[in-house]
Design a binder for these strands. Structure first.
Lengths: 153, 153
DNA sequence: CTTTTACCCTATCTACCAGATAGGATTTGA
DNA sequence: TCAAATCCTATCTGGTAGATAGGGTAAAAG
């Protein structure tokens, strides 16, 4: 399972993407809109800023805004930032590789091969999932489900 | 990441599958062969027994052995047993479903859709991965890498 | 029927960390 | 100068992963 931190982080980023024509957005506004404890969110946004994904402005009218192009920010990156490796075994990660102590021969480990495939599939999907892509999906989903009420007029 | 418990559990199960023609196998033997703390392994095997996957015999010559057909034991099942849900968000699990508090409208949530796909792919692979399948992979991998030394004679 | 072997079961410990809060320092705009 | 907002460090709390201790119970050997 994703940590709360990652979940909150992703939700906040999508929110910032959705409203990125409105200038800096205050922590409290995001916190209320997305139901996230404000103080906790503060720490999360700070981390995203230090990672070069967000930027901020202090003082009145200040807040956070997206620094990078929303097509360039992938969910895989956010997850790694907060939760570390995406793979389920240390021996199948690319970015955080570590040997399994209990494993004798990596090259012929059937378990490893399975989890290598799981890892590859997962990373592929999470690399495709940029902030922009998530927004686009939202729009598409609304067009599919919304019309039943809205378009009947 | 998988918990140690799950990793140890899977390794022990594969070991038991590999030697399932040898009758009951003692905890200590598995522990030594797979580099697992014996006392910890004890608890793990007990849990696998209570789950109906293993059976045991006490006394001299006793130990654990596979109760179910190795083609019927899937890694997905072991993972759920020890680590709970496989999905990364509570709102995309089938067996442990729970609403995301921060999520407003599940039907149009782009984040959810992404993680639904991740979950489906992962479960598909882990359902295919039975104990027998893991053993078969081992064999195939050995045939691919081993011959360079063994077959050159 | 006693000894040995090995599983069964509960309790406990330690370290760590996720999730969250407190409170003040600093910057900015009106 | 005041108010709004981020910045930053410290701290708390509960839960839990990983592991160990130790005695209870069943089975087999002789």
């Amino acid at each position: 399972m994703l940590s709360r931190k990652t979940r909150y982080g992703i939700n906040a980023l999508v929110y910032l993407t959705r409203h990125r024509d409105q200038g800096p957005i205050a922590i409290t506004r995001i916190a209320e809109a997305e139901h996230i404890p404000a103080k906790f969110l503060e720490a999360i946004l700070l981390e995203l800023k230090n990672a070069g994904i967000l930027a901020s402005r202090k003082g009145k009218g200040g807040g956070y805004y997206l620094l990078r192009d929303p097509e360039k920010v992938r969910l895989s990156e956010i997850m790694r930032l907060f939760d570390g490796p995406i793979a389920l075994l240390p021996c199948v990660t690319n970015k955080y590789y570590e040997r399994c102590e209990e494993c004798r021969d990596e090259a012929t480990c059937g378990i490893r091969q399975v989890f290598q495939e799981v890892r590859d599939q997962t990373v592929r999907l999470l690399d495709q999932a940029t902030l922009q892509e998530v927004l686009d999906r939202e729009t598409r989903l609304q067009e599919e489900s919304g019309p039943s009420k809205a378009d009947q007029a």
